[in-house]
Amino acid sequence: MAHRSRSSAPVEDRADKVCAVCGRTITWRAKWARDWPQVRHCSDACRARARSGAGEREELEAALRERLARCSAGTTACPSEVARAVHAARGGSGDGWRDLMEPVRQAARRLAADGELEITQNGVVVDPSRAKGPVRLRPVR
């Protein structure tokens, strides 16, 4: 007996998506075939953060855009610069900016998915979902 395909979704509808919260790539799975058009988050944790952190996401994206607007041609910015600036604007002091590093990287991944910036390592553009270690951000011009 031949095996039937588990998927009822046409191949062209299986394109990868970007998580609305963290900006990571969501790859199509057979168990999501019925609900694939409604999938917006890569995990339950991102789904929970989507309900609570919309204001912070907008704040961080605005701070990233502002920092990248100041970049001259051929220069890049470090995500830590944005985290430090947002932390200072909130009236924080000390190392509290480190708690903002992952949310800043998430905001950068979302902007990269929208085509507003590029994420680089050693001067080479990398896949935002798979980048590990220190990264730099540069505007798309």
Score class of each variant (00 low, 15 high):
R47D: 06
R47C: 05
A48G: 08
A48I: 08
A48H: 13
R49I: 00
R49K: 12
A50W: 06
R51L: 12
R51A: 13
S52T: 15
S52N: 09
S52P: 00
S52A: 14
S52R: 15
S52D: 07
S52L: 13
G53A: 08
G53K: 06
G55L: 11
E56K: 14
L60I: 15
L60W: 03
E61G: 13
E61S: 09
E61M: 14
E61I: 04
A62F: 02
A63T: 07
L64C: 04
L64E: 00
L64W: 05
L64Y: 04
R65H: 04
E66H: 14
E66F: 08
R67Q: 15
R67P: 02
L68S: 01
A69P: 05
A69T: 12
R70L: 15
R70N: 07
C71P: 00
C71W: 00
A73P: 08
G74N: 09
T75A: 09
T75Y: 07
T75R: 14
T75P: 00
T76L: 04
T76D: 02
C78A: 15
C78Q: 15
P79I: 10
P79T: 11
P79Q: 09
E81G: 06
E81C: 04
V82A: 02
V82Q: 00
A83V: 09
A83S: 13
A83T: 08
A83C: 12
A85L: 07
A85F: 02
A85I: 02
R90S: 09
G91M: 11
G91E: 10
G91V: 11
G92P: 10
G92E: 02
G92Y: 02
G94P: 04
G94D: 01
D95N: 14
D95I: 02
R98W: 05
D99Q: 15
L100F: 13
L100V: 11
M101W: 06
M101S: 09
M101Q: 15
M101G: 03
M101K: 10
M101T: 13
E102P: 04
E102V: 14
E102N: 12
V104N: 01
V104T: 13
V104W: 00
V104A: 03
R105N: 11
Q106C: 13
Q106D: 12
Q106V: 00
A107E: 01
R109L: 12
R110N: 07
R110A: 04
L111M: 13
L111H: 09
A113G: 14
D114L: 15
G115S: 12
E118N: 09
E118F: 04
I119L: 12
T120H: 12
T120E: 14
Q121P: 03
Q121W: 05
N122R: 15
V124K: 13
V124S: 06
V124P: 00
V125D: 07
V125F: 02
V125N: 03
V126W: 03
D127E: 15
P128F: 11
P128G: 05
P128L: 04
S129H: 12
S129R: 09
R130E: 01
R130T: 14
K132I: 12
G133F: 10
G133M: 07
G133W: 10
G133Y: 10
G133N: 05
P134Q: 13
V135G: 03
V135Y: 06
V135W: 05
R136H: 10
R136S: 10
L137S: 02
R138F: 04
R138G: 08
R138V: 10
P139S: 15
P139K: 15
